[in-house]
Design a protein around this nucleic acid. Structure first.
Lengths: 337, 337
DNA sequence: TGGTTTATCCAAAACGTTTTGGAGATTATA
DNA sequence: TATAATCTCCAAAACGTTTTGGATAAACCA
């Protein structure tokens, strides 16, 4: 029942070819005709059938994002801001945005296959990379364009946005030392995570430069959820002597750590310092507000989209790589006032 | 380059018709043949081209969700849990999930048109309904299936999940009275919002039954963000005499209110009580943990999907309506310990 | 004038499925 | 044995676009 290109052609006594070309702005149609076509098409409420267009053009005009199965829930602030950025940028550019979340690894693989094999998407955004990552391997094999947040090991080139936190962590540790914190702990994620390796590496480097010793028992893994952070922090705080500053791999984990510290009756900001990573919006409203390394998640997502679309358009000489420098936001959670 | 149905047919010396029908499980193909087809197709890595299928079947096997332009950001915990539910249930059922966020109202309308007119989606999920809502009107006009969270005014029938908070709010107010709170304020959202009207209505009803007077100056509107809640709460707390309990339209708003109360140096849970709505996961980790009316957002989203899919399948006698009773979670933010 | 460009337009062939309306065997029925 | 019913299969026609490879007429050039 929707109006097709044929209807428009019939109404104007033109061929569908001409209508199609007029709407696509080819220069082999008289500008007089073109105006007429555009006007009539709009008037009749013509909207091209996406499936037909996709089939013929062999393009989906759609970008996909699959929540990694390793993520416990899509509802984390991190993913939200990230997804918001992807969605906004994509819809602004006339692309559609397909989302799924994988619950198991088998599932995840199947989703990738379904989308790639079925031509559902022209490209994908991949995040939460592992040091060795089967997803990038698969996508390269299949020759499907993609862009990533952080990058895995290997010599393959692909567009990505990378965080360089070396300097920021140095600043952070200096701030901590200046405020009397000397016994630093780290609640990370799964060790195969690129983020885990990088952030821990930067912390170690900065600690070395500031002559701080990090007790190996103070480095533990959680699962990037607030519950995981809560439990990990409880463990850490039970050790004697206990750490006096807890650096978390992300804000979400830090929320749980805050909770655990409150529960222990510790005065956060003086007896114990807690630090996040990401600079999510909720980090401003915790009690006390959370010191964190802020990265522009929303903008990073937008950039990834632009990179990916550029690759799709073929305007790609070498793969883009964007470097992001986190910004240290000092708030009440590490500040003895 | 991907393997098509034609390739499978050729390999087996069968017609593409037979292959297609075998894969779809029609009974006019010998079960012997069918087995063979399925095996070979799988072996060759055949994945049906979605665009072609959609074009022919005139179905997209896709459900859409458009973030209302009225929402400031997709990253709110509410939407996250909700979207997570939609995504999980849809991918589980083999449907694709298309997401967009509208930034302006024009934009929003255009998105609906693009998806509906272009046959991109078979149905839509609509949320954050207004008392009068052009979206439900449009979708009914266009005869496109949809399901909603809450329902707008009007006699139209369509599947929806509705919250019935009457009893829960009565319980809440009784709890507040029992704990010595008598001067109740409400931070709502835009007044045209169904949620605003309903929740305020329930509060008024319960207050009436408990002989509580609600000062009209204590009822104000915010924009459903934590920043909005923060500002609104600051205003409320500057009134003398000030309210001793602030009920917020949702958790997000309550996060901001908590922050404002901390800033004023008030002891939350004794001098001032603060209450949210939704029962988002973050509400457990605030300081103090937030008293809230918990609704199973994730499950509600799943139910909506099931309802919508049932409608699509045509197994619909009358429109489904699900009632949800919120559960009162009493936590530190209203509890003088 | 005759030939070559140039400016417009179009018929028909894709794209990869599903569906329609049989055809040809084989089996059951009279 | 002839006819009807049942099993399998298939050729061809959709679905609504875009793209290819001209066709026609007007304008230009020598």
């Amino acid at each position: 029942m929707p109006v097709t290109i044929r209807d428009v052609a019939k109404r104007l006594h033109l061929s569908i070819t001409t209508v199609s070309r007029a709407l696509d702005g080819y220069d082999d149609v008289a500008s007089e005709t073109q105006k007429e076509v555009i006007r009539t098409a709009h008037e009749m409420g013509y909207i091209p059938n996406r499936a037909a267009r996709q089939l013929r053009r062999r393009k989906a005009e759609t970008i996909g994002f699959i929540m990694p199965a390793s993520a416990k829930r899509i509802a984390e602030p991190f993913f939200m801001e990230f997804i918001a950025g992807l969605g906004d940028e994509l819809t602004m550019r006339g692309y559609d945005f397909l989302v799924a979340n994988a619950t198991t690894h088998v599932d995840e693989r199947e989703l990738y296959q379904r989308w790639v094999g079925g031509n559902k998407v022209d490209g994908l955004i991949v995040t939460r990379l592992n040091v060795q990552d089967w997803r990038v391997q698969y996508l390269i094999e299949q020759n499907v364009p993609f862009a990533t947040l952080e990058r895995s090991n290997g010599r393959a080139i692909y567009p990505c946005v990378q965080v360089d936190g070396e300097h920021a962590y140095f600043e952070l540790l200096r701030h901590l030392v200046d405020n009397g914190y000397h016994h630093i702990a780290f609640i990370g994620g799964p060790v195969e995570l690129v983020n885990h390796q990088n952030r821990l590496g930067w912390i170690r480097k900065a600690a070395g430069e500031l002559d701080l010793l990090i007790d190996p028992a103070f480095i533990i893994s959680a699962d990037l959820t607030s519950m995981g952070g809560y439990q990990a922090a409880k463990e850490l705080l039970d050790i004697t002597p206990r750490p006096d500053a807890i650096l978390c791999i992300d804000d979400e984990t830090a929320f749980g750590a805050l909770h655990a510290a409150h529960e222990k009756g510790l005065s956060i900001g003086s007896e114990i310092g807690i630090v996040g990573f990401d600079g999510t919006l909720e980090s401003q409203h915790t009690e006390p507000p959370l010191t964190t390394l802020d990265i522009p998640l929303y903008n990073m997502a937008c950039r990834l989209v632009r990179m990916l679309l550029k690759t799709l358009a073929g305007h790609t000489q070498e793969a883009d790589v964007d470097k992001i420098i986190p910004e240290l936001h000092i708030r009440g959670s590490t500040h003895r006032s």
